[in-house]
Amino acid sequence: MNDLNTNTNGEYAIEGNNLNIYYGDFRAIKDVTLKFKARKITALIGPSGCGKSTALRAFNRMNDLVPISRLEGQVLFRGKNIYDPDVDPVEVRRRIGMVFQKPNPFPKSIYDNVAWGAKINGFKGNKSDMDGLVEQSLRQAALWNEVKDKLNQSGLSLSGGQQQRLCIARTIAVKPEIILMDEPASALDPIATLRIEELIQELKQNYTILIVTHNMQQAARASDYTAFFNMGEDRAGYLVEFGETDSLFTNPQNDLTEQYITGRFG
């Protein structure tokens, strides 16, 4: 019955249909429909408080952790609504990984930071398989050369940018299909930010990436598609415009989009 495992993908890696998200009585997201192509980078942009992070978290059920939150609509992943009662959010998060705004490595060694996710998800290899997985993940996260001699040191001893790349390595070690990134570079300096952006481009070959950013240049530089969110009169976030990044930035269809990307508000 494991639909998340057996079904093939349709045209889209993941799609949200008519999403409404509530915190108690407050509606944070209003009627959002978004479809994400596989192995592409989609940026979610918009002014502060417009609900783009909330929308992102709906795609791996992280909003479930907020007891008062409630979702209407459906999120289709491999043809299955991940909010169906027979779907375990643990499996959803194993297949749809997440990188957070503030680097949050575990207070463990660099090695264990990467290996832990594999261990708890029932990784079946022996010690050398695990060593290989750790090395491969750290290489994919462009961190291997910097940490290969100090894998036993605490993950917290790294710099902010390195910590964030460690978090990315940790996420890809459990072989997800989709990676959600919630402003992954906003706590980093420009050089570290650039490295993360380069890394995201690399990861595109293997993963579908959804990235929330408040940095428009970043969205323009680093993404294939862009979704622009705005906040309505009722403070609920809604989707204004969604399209290929190039056309959205050069030829926006909506006045609000144009005002936002030219820096007149937000």
């Binding site: 997440m98 575990f106 708890i120």
Partner: peptide, 27 residues
């Protein structure tokens, strides 16, 4: 125990108990 740690753990596909046992309690 910081919420970011719990989120990191759950985001990797850990169950609630794995999160409590491996991260919340040690910290």
């Amino acid at each position: 125990v910081p919420g970011s740690l719990r989120q990191a753990s759950l985001g990797l596909g850990a169950t609630k108990w794995q999160t409590i046992w491996h991260h919340v309690l040690p910290n």
